[in-house]
Design a protein around this nucleic acid. Structure first.
Lengths: 221, 221
DNA sequence: AATACCAACTTGGTATCCCAATTTGGTATC
DNA sequence: GATACCAAATTGGGATACCAAGTTGGTATT
C-alpha cells in the first residue's frame, strides 16, 4: 500500500480513536516523523482528511476538528434525510438477502462483545442499510455522516438500556424493510435518529466540563 | 491567492466548461506547464477535484470523469432527499427576506440574458434555497450535487419552453416556502427535480452519439 | 510481413530543499 | 512587574530532484 494511504489511514484512526484530541494542533513535520513518511504523502492525507471534516485549517496550520454540538444537530437532520431516502428505496426492492446479512451482523453482538465492537456495528448497521439502496451518493452521505459522528458517539455516556433499546429499534426497522413497508420503516428510522441525537447532544452537553478537562475542544450548540 | 487555489479553480472551470472533455486523460506535468505552477499545488488541486467527483483515477493516471447516465439518476434521488429536507426547514423559518433575494435573482434573467447565465442562475436557485435552511451539510450536499450535474445540464438540449416551465416551477416553490407551506413546497420541488432528471437523461441518451463524436466519454445507464 | 524483444521515454509517487510568513522567547525599557 | 520590541526558530506553501513502474517505438529475427 502506498505511503499516502498509510498515513491517511493511520492518522484517521488516531483521530477517530481520540489518540489525538479534538482541537489539537497538527504540524506536517510531526506527522512526517511520526509515520516515517515525507511531506508529500502527509499533505495528501491532510487534504483528504480535511474533506472528511476530521481536520480543519486554523489560519495557516492544521487542527483536529473540535466536537461541535451545533454541528451534531445539523448532521442528525442531514442523515435523517439521506437515510430515510435510502431505506425507502431499499424497502421497494425485492432483494431480502441483504437484510438478513445485516440482521446477522446485529446478532453477532452479545454480552461478551466489547463496547468498541458494539459501537462499530451500530455504525455499520446504518451504513450497510444505506448500501442496500444501491445509491452510491446516499451511501457516501451516510458513511460520511457516521464518520463525523463517530468520535462524539464514542464519547457519549451510554447505558446498557439505551444500547438495548437502540438494538431493538434496529431490528424493528429491518423488519419493516423486510415487509416492504417503506412508510413504517421511514417513521421508525426518523424516530431512531432523533432519539439518538437527543441522547448524544444532552450527554455531551452534560459532560462538556469533563471533556474539556481531558483537553478536548468542545464548541457549544 | 495561493497557487493551489488558482490551479484548482482554473482547472475546475476548464472541466466544467468542457474545455477538457469528459473521459480525457490528465497528466500532472501538462497541468504544471499549462498553469505555470509546480507539482505540489497541482497535486493538491487534483486531490480536491477528485473528492468533488470531477476527476478520477484511471489506474496510475488521472481522468476527467465521464458523463455517467446511471450516476445522473442516482444524483437526482440524492438531491431530492436533501433539497426537500432543506426546503422543509426553510418553510418553517420566519425569515422571508432571503426568499425575496432568490426571487430577484430569478427575475434578473430575461430574453437578452445569455444561456450560460440562465444555466448558472438555475443552479444557484437550488443552492441558495438550500443555504436558507441554515444547515451546512444540506447546503454542501446540494452544492456538490449541482457541481456534478452542471456539465451534463450544459450539454442538455433545452428548449425555451422547458426553460420557462422550470422558471415557473422555481417561482411556485418560492411562493409555497413564503407561505410556510412545507408540504406543498416539498411536493413541487420533488416534481421539479424528477422532471428535470427525466428531461436530462433522455436528452443525453438521445444525443449520446453526438456526444461521443465530440470525444466525450458517456457511460450508459 | 509478423513478432519478439529491448531501450528510451513518460508518469505518478516520494524525498528534499528553499522561502516567506508567523510564532516564540527573551530582553530592554518604562 | 508589565510591555514593547526584536532575533531566532518554526511552519506551511512551493519548487525541484530522483525513482520505480509502465508505456512506447523501433529493431532484429524469423
Amino acid at each position: 500500500m502506498s505511503q499516502m494511504q498509510n498515513v491517511e489511514r493511520q492518522l484517521r484512526e488516531m483521530i477517530l480513536g481520540l489518540e489525538i484530541g479534538p482541537g489539537e494542533r497538527l504540524t506536517e513535520r510531526w506527522i512526517e516523523s511520526r509515520f516515517g513518511a515525507s511531506r508529500t504523502p502527509v499533505r495528501a492525507a491532510l487534504l483528504r482528511l480535511e474533506t472528511e471534516g476530521l481536520i480543519g485549517r486554523d489560519g495557516r496550520g492544521w487542527t483536529v476538528a473540535p466536537i461541535n454540538l451545533a454541528e451534531l444537530g445539523q448532521i442528525a437532520v442531514y442523515r435523517e434525510a439521506v437515510e430515510v431516502a435510502a431505506v425507502r428505496l431499499t424497502a421497494a426492492l425485492e432483494d431480502r438477502a441483504g437484510i438478513d446479512v445485516i440482521a446477522a451482523m446485529l446478532d453477532s453482538c452479545d454480552a461478551e462483545t466489547p463496547r468498541e465492537e458494539w459501537h462499530r456495528v451500530g455504525m455499520d448497521f446504518h451504513i450497510e442499510l444505506a448500501r442496500l439502496s444501491g445509491n452510491e451518493f446516499l451511501l457516501r452521505a451516510v458513511r460520511d455522516a457516521m464518520t463525523r459522528l463517530s468520535r462524539a458517539r464514542w464519547l457519549e455516556v451510554r447505558d446498557e438500556q439505551a444500547l438495548g433499546r437502540a438494538w431493538a429499534e434496529h431490528h424493528a426497522i429491518l423488519a419493516a424493510v423486510r415487509n416492504g413497508d417503506a412508510e413504517e420503516a421511514a417513521r421508525m428510522l426518523s424516530a431512531h435518529i432523533g432519539g439518538s441525537r437527543d441522547r448524544l447532544v444532552s450527554s455531551l452537553h452534560d459532560d462538556r466540563r469533563g471533556l474539556r478537562a481531558r483537553g478536548f475542544a468542545v464548541v457549544a450548540a
